[in-house]
Write a protein that binds this DNA or RNA. Structure first.
Length: 567
RNA sequence: CGAGGCGUGGCUCAGUUUGGUAGAGUACUGCGUUCGGGACGCAGGGGUCGCAGGUUCAAAUCCUGUCGCCUCGACCA
């Protein structure tokens, strides 16, 4: 490709909308163009990189036994109604109607459709397992699209679905995908970490997320500094710690505590540490209210709570609702509460002589003890784990990091096969539900994550495997026929060697060309200048390291053949 | 969806308070000079001021409505 023909326009200034580095650089490098919130055109440079990522994905999926297919994007409402998700999915499901007024949606994911396809074709255990995948545009009408390709409403995703006879088969498929995902992200040049993840209402340890490590990541992960435990903050656990253990149970005191609303207020007023206080919150789970207890210095993990309550909507109960239930906002406590279910974090039963809200205006209790002074309906782990707390496996400290979720592997078990009737006959002719898994990779998000991890002040630093082009050839003076001839000769030779080269033939000053080369992130740059004329030496510069070599023509080509993998 | 903010050439923004018929930088075109890290001079082209109503002799500017976009919170690849 000649730079003069490349369909790209680099920008010195960053459009005001861009917030994170990958988004800014993609805009400045002329890789993407926004069409609407969370909807982008992939311009040629971005698309080349996307195609390379997709190729890596295809190779690994095929190697793991996957077969590629391509399902429709417009889904009739019926199949979503069959699974119940037409209602459940909510506003994020992009709905539309055809000319006859029939309901459709633009697919946000394909469990329903693939399951119905498999149901239609596979009837016998002999046809299992099946690993079917596609790379396709998905639509999710996000409340808040953000960060360029990082969170779009229209985005490209690889989704694979596994169908097995039983749990053992699913385990094998899951393992194969887990390994394939590790290979893929490794090949893309990402620093990543698989972490245990929330598997929603399905429960069990049935999901891992692949997190590309990046400060700009929206997800938090906790990992052990000593063993291999790593989990999304959504599900990370840590052993419960009580307070006051070993103390004699003391007598309850009712204290006047004016204007003490927060745990901090109460702890200061009573002269105790927050870990001696039980924080009581009233949540509204769908239509019912629940009281939730947790140690005063801890935070609720609402994902865990939501899973335990098995509800669709979870939010703080509005004050009016709390009052209507006969409780006093700001002074909530478990003592004497009968009508409302009480859920406590695992640490609460281990607390001796704790403080808590008095259940009436401006009052708190001292020396409350669970079991003696109130009953808990359900005890479970509902706390948010922070860095520095002990690892649930080995007890050493956990560390916290931020990540971009570039992929997720997920055991579905029989969730969809059951409701959609995907069954097979086993050796005995018995009908059984297929056991499913699903596995997704955000292709654009992966590309964005690569940039997020590989850049400097000058621009992108593409890893070779996913670089749109591998080499840029820059003649420093476009009016010097000798330099231009040499550059052209090198360019042609690189093309002959199947090296993806760009010749910067534009009538620009060298500074402009160098800056564009840095911005676009070509892994290697060959500059043809004085030394080429006088000593027949070409300057070869590596973008990532800044390392410069001077090599004769033939050696330059050989070197580039090596580093681009085109031997 | 809740809370803030912004819509003016491709991009970054000024002009809006105090109404008078649109400007700068950058990018783009032509000519000349320049040529190893975003050169300079001269001459150009390009904007229904988001949209729709209204007020006014006159609206980018004031009023009403509406659409779009961005940022902060709960969900996901």
């Amino acid at each position: 490709m000649r730079a003069s023909r490349l369909f790209v326009s680099t920008m010195r200034e960053v459009p005001a909308e861009a917030e994170i580095i990958s988004h800014k650089l993609m805009l400045r490098a002329g890789m993407i163009h926004k069409e609407a919130a969370g909807i982008y055109t992939y311009l040629p440079l971005a698309w080349r990189s996307m195609k390379k990522i997709m190729q890596i994905i295809r190779e690994e999926m095929d190697a793991a036994g996957g077969q590629e297919l391509f399902m429709s994007t417009a889904h009739p409402a019926e199949i979503w109604q069959q699974s119940g998700r037409w209602q459940v999915y909510g506003a994020e499901l992009w709905r539309l109607q055809d000319r006859h007024g029939r309901d459709f949606c633009l697919a946000p994911t394909h469990e329903e459709m693939i399951t119905l396809n498999v149901k239609n074709i596979a009837r016998s255990y002999r046809q299992l397992p099946q690993l079917l995948y596609q790379i396709q545009t998905k639509f999710r009408d996000e409340r808040r699209p953000r960060f360029g390709l990082m969170r779009g409403r229209e985005f490209i995703m690889k989704d694979l679905y596994s169908f097995d006879r039983d749990e053992a088969g699913l385990d094998a498929s899951y393992q194969a995908m887990y390994q394939a995902y590790s290979n893929i992200f490794h090949r893309c040049g990402l620093r990543f970490r698989p972490v245990e993840a929330d598997s929603g209402a399905i429960g069990g340890k049935g999901s891992h997320e692949f997190m590309a490590l990046a400060e700009s990541g929206e997800a938090e992960i906790l990992y052990c500094t000593s063993c291999d435990y790593a989990a999304s903050s959504e599900i990370a656990a840590t052993p419960p710690q009580g307070t006051g253990s070993g103390e004699e149970l003391k007598e309850v005191e009712d204290v006047y505590t004016p204007d003490c609303i927060t745990v901090e207020d109460v702890a200061n007023f009573l002269g105790v540490t927050p870990d001696r206080v039980v924080k009581t919150m009233c949540y509204q789970a769908d239509d019912r209210l629940v009281l939730v207890l947790i140690r005063g210095d801890r935070q609720i993990n609402e994902i865990k709570l939501k899973n335990i309550l098995d509800c669709f909507e979870l939010q703080f109960a509005p004050d009016e609702a709390i009052r209507a239930a006969g409780l006093v906002p700001g002074y909530l406590g478990p003592v004497g509460v009968k009508e409302i279910k009480i859920i406590a974090d695992s640490e609460v039963p281990l607390m001796v002589n704790h403080e808590c809200g008095g259940g009436r205006e401006s009052h708190h209790f001292l020396n409350i003890n669970p079991g003696r002074d109130y009953q808990i309906d359900l005890v479970d782990d509902i706390r948010l784990v922070r860095g520095g707390e002990p690892c649930p496996h080995c007890g050493k400290a956990l560390a916290m990091a931020r990540g971009i979720e570039v992929g997720q592997v997920f055991k579905l078990h029989t969730k969809y096969s059951k409701v959609l009737g995907a069954r097979y006959a086993d050796e005995n002719g018995q009908e059984k539900d297929m056991v499913m898994g699903c596995y997704g990779i955000g292709v654009g998000r992966t590309m964005a994550a690569v940039i997020e991890q590989n850049h400097d002040d000058g621009g992108i630093i593409w890893p070779m495997a996913v670089a749109p082009y591998q080499v840029i050839v820059i003649p420093v003076n476009d009016r010097d026929p000798e330099l231009m001839t040499l550059a052209e000769k090198l360019y042609q030779e690189l093309l002959r060697q199947k090296i993806e080269a760009v010749l910067d033939d534009r009538p620009e000053r060298p500074g402009v060309k160098f800056n564009d080369a840095d911005l676009l992130g070509y892994p290697f740059r060959v500059t043809i200048g004085k030394k080429a004329k006088e000593e027949q030496l070409l300057e070869l510069k590596e973008r990532a390291t800044g390392e410069v070599r001077f090599l004769p023509f033939t050696e330059t080509v050989e070197f580039l053949k090596q580093v681009t993998g085109n031997k």
